[in-house]
Structures are given as C-alpha cells and as structure tokens.
C-alpha cells in the first residue's frame, strides 16, 4: 500500500515563494482533493508529486522511499487537456500504456503478447464505457469520453498513485456527474491512492476522503512575494468513505438535500449525540 509523506516542502521561483512549510501524510488508498483559489500552488504541488517540478526545499517520500527525480510508471496522471495521444486510436492509446512497459526497445508488442495486451486494453475500455469506440481517434470523441479514455490509459499501466489535475474541469455538469461515478468506482475497485486538484468544492467533497485547502496566509501587497501558500484546512470528509466499500447511502432518493427541510428521524452530523 502506498502512502505519501511530505515534509516541510517549499517551492520558490527566483524570489517568488509559491509554497512554504507544507507537511502532509497521505494514507494508502485515500482520495485526497486539493482545493484553493487560483495561484495558490495546488497545481505546483501536484507537479512536484509527479516529479515534473523539483521542490526548492523539503522532501517527498513514497512508501518511505524518496520520490524518483523524474516521472515514472509508479505515478499515473490525467491532465485537464492533452492527456491522450491524438495519433493513436482509443484502443491504441490504452495499448500504448501496456506496450511501453513491456517492450523496452520497440515499444510495440507482436503476436500472442499483443493479442493478450489488446484484450486487456479492450477490457479496460469496456470498464470505462468506451467499449463501442475502440477504433475512433480522440479528436472524434467528446470531452467527457476523452477523459474516460485518459483514465483508462493511466490505469492500464497499473500505477500505485493516480494524480489528477482538474481532470473534469472542462466538462458539462451532466457528463461530470457520470464521470464522477466512474471515478469513485475505479477508486473502489483498484489499489489506488488518488490525489486530485480541483477548484470545485462540491466535486472535492463528493469524491474525496479528505479535502486539503491551500491558501496564502499573508496577503498584504508587500508580503505577497516572500510568503507563499500553505495548507490552511485539512478536512476529513463525513460520512467517511472507505476504499473498496462503495457508499450505499448515496443513491437513497428520500435523503434530504442541503436546501431541503431537515428530517426528524435519526441523528444528523451536527447532533450533539453524534459529536459525543
């Protein structure tokens, strides 16, 4: 199981301090959402987890070992855009993830090995609801389908950690709800630790086990340069989500929404009985 441990992390660009004093422990199999206003360094933090950027100070360890200095197959990623390869078909995109890991020189598989990988890729695509579009090119897919493909591609390489950089930010609300359900499904069914950057709070609380907010604590103009953002909130989502145990309460139709009148049966989360 893969835990991420971040110790006293700083990131500076020249004189500009972007992030400072970030210390976090991310438990194995958790689903962490990073939120915050734009420019608060949440994407920079994700890039450091990806090894796309190097921390100025501090350390990140994965399973107790220092993070590799460059991106690798232990950490998968889905970006908001450009996550899939336009020159490969849907099947080819997922197959590529398998071929790159298994054929070190050609990056291609042949014969029975290819047939096996092809079946694996097709099954993965079936799981994300793209079984009918294997031979299409990404440009022929809608935004939501492209992100499904990106998820399938990232997961086919079996990463321990999945990093998501506003993956659903550009999608329509209806499509988003569907892909949220898919995302939870995938997280429940695979041994994954997920870290997701989002600016959408309802998405963060709707998916994650833990929501972490980054923000600047010093915002006077003369302080902006030399003080970066840090962790300002660290919230366990309630009711607790546990990986591998899909929450059966969510689809209950008669559960009151936040703007509905309160029901009288049973304790709510703010009841004194529950707090005790």
């Amino acid at each position: 199981m893969t835990g991420i441990s971040v110790r006293d992390l700083w990131k500076e660009y020249g004189d500009q301090v972007v992030l400072e004093r970030v210390s976090l422990d991310i438990a194995p199999r958790s689903f962490v959402a990073l939120v915050g206003p734009s420019g608060c360094g949440k994407t920079t933090f994700l890039r450091m987890l990806l090894s796309e950027e190097v921390p100025s100070r501090g350390s990140i360890t994965l399973d107790g070992k220092p993070l590799a200095p460059e991106p690798g197959p232990d950490r998968g990623v889905v970006f908001q855009r450009y996550s899939v390869f336009p020159h490969l078909t849907v099947l080819g995109n997922v197959l590529l993830g398998l071929e790159l890991g298994r054929s070190r020189f050609w990056g291609r598989l042949f014969g029975p090995a290819r047939a096996a990988a092809r079946a694996e890729a097709a099954a993965m695509l079936e799981a994300v609801g793209l079984g009918h579009a294997l031979d299409k090119y990404p440009a022929q897919l809608s935004g939501g389908m492209q992100q499904r493909l990106a998820l399938a591609q990232a997961l086919a390489a079996k990463p321990k950690v999945l990093l998501l950089d506003e993956p659903f930010g550009a999608l329509d609300p209806g499509i988003r709800a569907e892909i949220h359900a898919l995302m939870l499904d995938l997280w429940h069914s695979r041994p994954l630790t997920v870290v997701m950057v989002t600016h959408d709070l309802s998405e963060a609380f709707g998916l994650a086990t833990r929501v972490i907010a980054f923000d600047r604590t010093r915002t006077r103009p003369e302080e902006r340069l030399r003080y970066g953002a840090t962790v300002t909130q660290d919230i366990e989502v309630w009711p607790k989500r546990v990986a591998g145990q899909p929450d059966k309460r969510i689809p209950q139709p008669n559960r009151p929404g936040r703007d509905d009148p309160a029901t009288l049966d049973g304790p709510g989360r703010d009841d004194p009985a529950h707090a005790a």
Partner: peptide
C-alpha cells in the same frame, strides 16, 4: 503533458521519441 504522460506510462527517451 504528452511527454510527461508517456513517461508515466513507462517510456524512456527512446520510446518517447519513436512512439510519441
């Protein structure tokens, strides 16, 4: 992003060059 993505799928410099 594509170059990064290919690396997270296990590609080294050579495979990024010939496959991406």
């Amino acid at each position: 992003q594509q170059i990064i993505k290919a690396q997270t799928l296990g590609a080294g410099t050579w495979l990024v060059a010939i496959r991406v």
